[in-house]
């Protein structure tokens, strides 16, 4: 019997093999190459030749105030948007679940931000906040206030704009994911709670959220990964500025590599980024994969 299973699996393995081999070539090898480059000096604009420098680049990393700042920015851009997406998404899912009159079209609408090209999302928000000509000024004028805020000019408000945009992109889809999970929870559980005297919100607190905890964790991991990959929105809205206030690690890597051609240093930043990513996310991802079996 065991032999038969093995035999069957080998046939399936053959179907997986082409993708597996392709993925090794297009993912593992590049990652190893990046690490290799990070141990060398490599700046084509410099008169200094390509050559081995060992861990030197990593040493510079630790002294580089711009890098340390970009770590801090990355943390902000993960923690706040993801927390907002999860809480707002849950609130919206609970509200949507009731299927109140006149709300079904919202379910379709909620798909929108998730599929809009991120570059366009950036543009949408950039246009919305243009001082004088943007929707913010318009909404202010409706309330009789002259709102000419130049939000992208100061570090804190620029970071705020990025956080708003990133939350705007992610929240509706998180809500829909939570909704589909909420709808699988048996009605009986809520009825039972109701009989025990629990109110509507209370029963969601004591029933829905504990049941959905694994789903929440999973969604969170995926949202963190999305937040790490944030690039087009920053590229278009702020270019990492002002004064580096919206420049997370991957953006700094881009600037180092493509603006200053410090290829080696860009590679070093990327390796550090990849390590951070793996340390925090890999355990969760492996758990998710195991559960999907």
């Amino acid at each position: 019997m065991k032999n038969i299973i093995r035999h069957r699996d080998s046939a399936y393995l053959a179907m997986v093999a082409p993708s597996a081999i392709l993925l090794v070539i297009i993912t593992i090898i590049p990652i190893l190459a990046t690490f290799y480059i990070s141990l060398h000096f490599f700046n084509p604009t410099s008169t200094r030749q390509f050559g081995w420098v060992g861990w030197e680049n990593y040493g510079y990393l630790l002294e580089d105030s711009r890098y340390l700042n970009s770590l801090r920015v990355m943390l902000w851009l993960i923690v706040i948007p993801v927390a907002l997406q999860i809480t707002l998404g849950m609130a919206l899912a609970i509200a949507l679940k009731e299927k109140l009159a006149g709300t079904s079209w919202m379910r379709v609408l909620f798909l929108l931000p998730a599929v809009i090209p991120p570059a366009v999302s950036g543009l949408v928000w950039k246009l919305f906040i243009v001082p004088g000509a943007g929707g913010v000024t318009y909404m202010g004028s409706l309330l009789g206030i002259d709102l000419q805020l130049d939000l992208l000019s100061s570090p804190n408000s620029a970071l705020f704009v990025i956080i708003v945009c990133s939350t705007w992109v992610g929240t509706p889809f998180v809500a829909l994911l939570f909704l589909s999970s909420l709808e699988t929870i048996s009605k009986d559980l809520y009825e039972a709670a109701h009989l025990d005297g629990a109110g509507w919100l209370q029963s969601h607190w004591s029933i829905s959220i504990p049941i959905m905890r694994p789903v929440i964790m999973t969604v969170m991991v995926f949202r963190i990964l999305e937040a790490l990959a944030i690039f087009p929105i920053i590229f278009i809205l702020t270019g990492g500025g002002p004064a580096g206030s919206t420049e997370p690690v991957n953006y700094y890597a881009y600037v180092s590599g493509f603006q200053y051609l410090k290829i080696d240093y860009a590679a070093t930043i990327i390796v550090s980024f990849f390590v951070i990513l793996m340390v925090f996310c890999a355990p969760f991802l492996i758990r998710i994969a195991r559960a999907a079996r």
Binding site: I31, A33, N250, A253, F273, F274, L277, L285
Partner: peptide, 18 residues
């Protein structure tokens, strides 16, 4: 599966230099 998921998780910037 874990590997597929990890690859899917890595942001594009990870691959850009090579």
């Amino acid at each position: 599966l874990s590997w597929v998921l990890l690859v899917r998780a890595a942001p594009g910037m990870v691959y850009i230099v090579p």
